[in-house]
Design a protein around this nucleic acid. Structure first.
Lengths: 227, 227
DNA sequence: ATACTGTTTCTACTTAAGTAGCACATATTA
DNA sequence: TAATATGTGCTACTTAAGTAGAAACAGTAT
């Protein structure tokens, strides 16, 4: 059930048993939102199935930015767990979701009593740090069409060659993932479609020719290089 | 010497003594670069004095992005310490710098033997996460002139009312901090100068009227709100 | 079946930011 | 002191991305 959870793999058997006994399973239906950020300090969750987007909303324009698309094995809110500060961020279920939940104080006191397990947090925190760092550098170094190409390629399943995780999202959600707007994303998607690399329909994107996408990404790099 | 170091404040007396005995002092002169990222996995540093910028360089355009301006109490490389992965990032001393240094493996084994001290890493990791998250949302929600205003205001000393930390940087370095270019930053700085809010000279920025800066920031918000 | 909502596809327009280049000023050092 | 490098201030130009709005379409609910 929790195989492949980065969070647990460093833990020994007895620790992971006592750790898991802290939690109880919860089911949230699609589109459920966790809006109250104070509550993030009250509960801690591990995702068993389904997608949860972590996002921010600009209070002045209402524009949205999806910071992470959390899936099985991801946890939240790691920010609060690390430094016990409030975290102004929202969560929304993109599918029906199953999570393991526990009150934050319960988890904190368990960690205090089992201090060697503090270290299980470290690689996960590192992974998040690297993802954010990567977002920052992508946003300063590359334009939106390149970021879109990267997003698509990154989410192609190596075996099936199919687009995963983001294949059923509307243009608006893709835009939120890249920090752009629906109109701009659609403009770039239409170009990719015209080149025969993707297929588009309502709430559905499919890879038609991964080779073209990879080639286009290479070209972008070359263009930047020539400048 | 290490008063106000976030990194140590959670540690008990005996831990911090044995912790500090791992390190030895090093002095690096201004403009020293740490280019070899493999080495980041070999050594770990705590800054005692001077500024160190952590930055990335786009391999295709040569454009730079300063991710963090590290000062007294900051450490590096926390990314490597957390997840033991390589970290493609550069460091450069903006001043003569004094650090405490230790081999990474030595620190790792000390932590292994003193597992309760794993937790001292957590709030620092949280702080870095929040700073990066903040960069990402600033970059998607606000334009460069607003980000410049925020940068200036954030670095005004509350008591002296003077600009600190970034007051002696050339326009190019300010641009790197915001992920922009010298020409654009200078354009915005000239506007602020014309409004009488700052004074500019070679490698020097001074606050002339903080009130104007704060007012301009408020106006930016209002403009975004009306859209 | 109908109305309603969300999504896609397009066109036309606006604007902030990036780019290029140059004159001039200020440091550094040879 | 001359020569060189670095930083500033400014102009003119280009372009990617944001903005606005409308038509057509696809699902859902009544």
């Amino acid at each position: 059930m929790l195989d492949g959870c980065d969070f647990l793999k460093e833990m020994d058997k007895e620790s992971s048993n006592s750790f898991l006994s802290l939690f109880k399973e919860e089911n949230w239906s699609k589109n459920t939102c966790i809006l109250n950020h104070e509550k993030l300090n009250y509960k801690f969750h591990i995702i068993l199935s389904g997608r949860v987007k972590m996002y921010q909303v600009d209070p002045f324009t209402g524009k949205e930015l999806t910071l992470f698309l959390l899936i099985k094995g991801d946890v939240f809110d790691i920010f609060c767990l690390l430094d016990e500060q409030e975290h102004t961020v929202y969560y929304e279920c993109l599918d029906d979701v199953t999570v393991l939940s526990t009150p934050m104080p319960k988890l904190r006191s368990w960690l205090k009593n089992n201090p060697k397990n503090y270290k299980i947090l470290l690689p996960y925190a590192g992974k998040q740090l690297r993802m954010l760092e990567n977002s920052v550098s992508d946003m300063t170094f590359t334009n939106i069409s390149t970021r879109l190409l990267k997003l698509l390629i990154r989410n192609v399943n190596a075996n099936s060659r199919d687009l995963e995780l983001i294949d059923d999202l509307p243009n608006k959600e893709i835009a939120n993932l890249l920090g752009s707007t629906r109109a701009v994303i659609n403009r770039h998607l239409q170009k990719l479609k015209k080149k025969g690399s993707i297929r588009l329909s309502r709430n559905r994107m499919e890879i038609k020719d991964l080779g073209i996408l990879i080639h286009l990404l290479e070209c972008q790099k070359k263009i930047m290089n020539e400048k």
